[in-house]
Design a protein around this nucleic acid. Structure first.
Lengths: 197, 197
DNA sequence: GTCTATAAAAGGATAGAC
DNA sequence: GTCTATCCTTTTATAGAC
């Protein structure tokens, strides 16, 4: 692993675990066993590390997120809930301390530079587009004229809101109930589509 | 205003605007025109300021949040959307930089002390209970056996997820679409209740 | 209770040798 | 490209006079 890869790897984990502000350069150095000269040679500032992390998430969405969740799933709507199930696993395995790395950063960074803000937005966009492709694949199971963009954004909405509550209460049941409500919404939509047909 | 009130007032605003970590004691002092001796006389540590802020939100939910939103509204389900409308106003008036003060803190503070965590949780709980009272008041308009607790949590889910996306994209339309999807969900529920009757 | 001055530590970043 | 040492700023918190 190159120093750059080491740093990105460590930063992805630490920003996720502790947040951006609470992760110091010293934390990154001790975790990677590098010296400050090496880090600053690759990343001129701490924000550049953040940018690298957000680019890594952006570029790794297929491999890191979608493929693991969708390996065994064919049904397009079940793919959506498999994706949410992946988040559930992370929440549960971390005793409800980890959430969505992008969502946490999005709320932690109050006045991010445009480059950072755009990367946060792009990460959300790609996530939403992946869900939207599932919705399009569901075709006539959803009511005619369904706004698949708005609905896929709503899946992200439900995920992020559920993660936030599970973390705050340190109880994954809050996430489960949010997913359950989203499932109910999809069930009603599928039922409405059936009746119209 | 007592020094204590001045500090809480300033801290509510600054934690909301800039977050907890990015608000320094010096920020609070300059905003309140107090000296550090006065602040530390009342609040032994910065975290005690945070606790005071969270207690203020907890104790002020009726006066600060619910009464302003519900002044003109009688219909219980419209009350819910009036509450969400209050958040929309805040988002829009702040150019999508302000969100929900509790939600931002909940994601920013990664390993809060139990006292802080409990206060965050209590704030969410009270918000959810207020929505749940609306759902109970809606009575037969919702399907028999509706889990009003889970549904009221889902309203919070939608609000927080919508706020997060609006802030990230700096575009209130993301919040609007989340609320619109929630409205669609309620419309489907009301329709299902009607058909069953 | 409030004032000023300052301690004590942490954090981001740089310099210059190798 | 990497090493060590260190600068400089910010930040929380304290001391002790008034």
């Amino acid at each position: 692993m190159t120093p750059r890869e080491k740093i990105i790897h460590a930063a992805m984990e630490l920003f996720w675990l502790k947040g951006y502000n609470s992760t110091s350069i010293a934390d990154l150095l001790s975790r990677t066993q590098l010296n400050s000269g090496s880090l600053y040679h690759v990343f001129p500032s701490k924000q550049d590390v953040l940018i690298g992390v957000l680019e890594a998430y952006r570029d790794g969405i297929e491999e890191m997120l979608l493929e693991p969740a969708w390996g065994q799933v064919d049904d397009p709507i079940e793919k959506i809930f498999a994706l949410l199930g992946g988040y559930r696993t992370m929440i549960a395995e971390s005793d409800c301390t980890y959430g969505c790395p992008i969502g946490s950063l999005a709320l932690e960074l109050h006045e991010p530079d445009p480059q950072v803000r755009d990367l946060l937005a792009v990460n959300f966009e790609n996530w939403v587009k992946a869900v939207q492709r599932c919705l399009e694949a569901a075709g006539p199971r959803l009511p005619k004229g369904t706004d698949t963009n708005a609905l896929s954004e709503f899946v992200l909405t439900a995920m992020e809101g559920g993660v936030m509550q599970a973390r705050t209460h340190r109880d994954v049941a809050y996430f489960d109930r949010a997913v359950e409500q989203l499932r109910a919404h999809f069930a009603l939509l599928e039922q409405a589509a059936k009746q119209a047909a």
